[in-house]
Computed example of a mutant assay.
Amino acid sequence: MENGTFGETLHEAEDNSDYYGYIVGSIVICSLLLTAVVYIVASLSVYEYKVKLKNKESLRLTRSRGQSRYVKDALADWMRKLCLIGSVLLVLRLICELFEITFGQNVAAACAVIRPFKAVLHSGVITCVYLVLWVRQRKFYKLPVMEHLVNKFIRFLSWSIIVIMVTADVVTILLYIATRKYTSSSRGCIVDWSTIWNKLPGLFLFLSTVTFQVILLGLLIYPLYIHHKAMKDITSPHKKEIMLIRRVTIAAIATVATDGICGLLSITVLSKTFSALRPLLYDFDMLMSLFCIIVSFVDWRTRLYPCMTDTREVTGTVKRVNLIHRSTETEIVTVDENVA
C-alpha cells in the first residue's frame, strides 16, 4: 500500500486552511527518520569495510601457508549488501520526501516527478528487505536438521515468493507511473488524473504483499513447528540452529506486523490529512523493517556499532578449506548461518 492508495479521489474539493503546522511537523519527522537511516547507512558501510578487511586477511593467511583452496559464502555477502542497498534507497526516498513537503503545495511539476520516483524507491527498499528473509529461509532448509523437510512443495512455495514479489514490483510501478499523474494542492501532492480505478494500484500491492508475506512466514514457522513436535526436549543437538530460525522468524513477524499496522493507520487515521504524512508513515514502516532484519543477525551489535568493534572481532565470509571438517557443505552452512 503506497501513495494515493486509499482516501484520495481525483480533484478532491480543497479548502484554503493553513497547513503550515503540518509542513513543519512533517519536516521534523522526516529529518529525524533521515538522521536514523543515514546512521544505519554509515554503520553498515563501516561494517562492510571491516568484513572486506577480514576476508583479505583470511586470503593472505591462506596463501602464506601455501594453500590455494578456500570457500566464500556468497549468500552472506549478498544479504549484507542488500541491507546496505535498502538503507541507501530509503535515504534517497526521505530526501524526496523533504522536496515534496517543501514544494508539494505550489509546484505541480515536483509532484509529477517525485511521486512516481518515490514509488520506485519504495519497491526497491521492500524488495531488499524481503530478499534477505527469502535468502535466509533458503539457507535454513540446507541445515542438516532441516534437510528432510525439503520437498517439491516446499521448493515450489519458496520460489513462488520471488515470482510474486517481482510481479508485484513491476506491475505496481507500472500502475503508479503509467496510469496516473500527480499535481500540487493545498494539502500537498495528490492524484490529478488516473486512467484506471484510483484505488487499484494500492489494492494490488496490498494483496500481492500479503500473499508473499504469508508464504514466507509459513516457510519460517513450518520447520519450527515440525522440530517442536519431533524434539520436545531441550537437549536437541540442533538447538543452536533452531534458535537462529526462531530469531529470524520473530524478525519476519515483526516486519509483517509493522507493515500491517502502518497500512491500517494509513487508510483510517491519515486518509484525509496532509498528504505527506501518509508517505512518512510508510518511511517509518520501512525503517522498522530494516531494523528488524539487521537485529535478526547474531552479530547485530557489530553491524550497528562497528566503530566500537575491533576488526578482529568481525566474522568474515572467506573460510580456509582446511578449517572445514567432515562434510564440507554441511559445516560451511552451519558456520555461516551462525554469523548470518
Rank of each mutant, 00 (worst) to 15 (best):
G263Y: 07
K272I: 05
D259E: 02
L265V: 02
L270W: 03
E241V: 04
F284V: 03
L280C: 10
I261A: 07
A254N: 02
L281Y: 12
L265F: 15
D259V: 05
K240I: 06
S236A: 14
M288R: 07
L264Y: 06
P279A: 08
L270S: 09
P279C: 12
K239N: 06
G260L: 05
L264W: 04
C262N: 07
T268E: 09
D283Q: 09
M243R: 10
H238L: 08
A254T: 00
L265M: 15
K240N: 11
K272A: 12
I253N: 04
L265K: 14
L270R: 01
L277N: 07
G260V: 02
A252L: 11
I294V: 15
L264A: 13
A251Y: 11
I261M: 12
I245A: 11
L244Q: 08
V269K: 03
L277A: 07
G263A: 10
H238P: 00
L244W: 00
L264K: 12
R278A: 11
I242L: 12
H238T: 04
V248E: 03
L281T: 09
F291Q: 01
I267D: 03
G263D: 01
K240V: 12
M288L: 15
D285F: 09
A254G: 00
F291H: 10
L265E: 01
L287I: 00
I250H: 01
F291G: 01
I253Y: 09
T258N: 14
I250C: 07
T255P: 02
L281R: 11
L270E: 02
F274Q: 02
L280Q: 02
V256S: 05
I261P: 03
I242D: 15
C292Y: 15
I293R: 02
I242V: 13
I294P: 06
T268H: 05
L290A: 08
A254Q: 06
G263I: 01
D285N: 12
A251D: 03
L277W: 15
S289G: 14
P279H: 11
Y282D: 01
V248T: 06
F274P: 11
A276C: 14
M286T: 00
L287K: 00
I253D: 00
E241N: 12
L264E: 01
L287M: 08
A257I: 10
R278L: 11
R247T: 02
L270D: 04
K239F: 09
A254M: 09
F291A: 05
M288Y: 14
T258L: 13
P279T: 09
M288Q: 08
S266C: 13
S289V: 05
L287C: 02
F291D: 00
D283L: 10
C292R: 03
T235V: 10
L281V: 07
K240C: 11
T268L: 13
K239E: 06
M243P: 01
L264I: 07
L265W: 12
D259P: 05
I261L: 14
L265G: 12
D259G: 15
V269W: 04
D283E: 08
E241D: 10
I253C: 12
K272S: 15
M286D: 03
K240R: 09
D259M: 07
L287D: 00
C262A: 13
A254D: 00
K240S: 15
A252T: 10
L290S: 05
S275K: 07
M288V: 13
L290R: 10
V248K: 02
I261Q: 09
T249Y: 04
G263P: 00
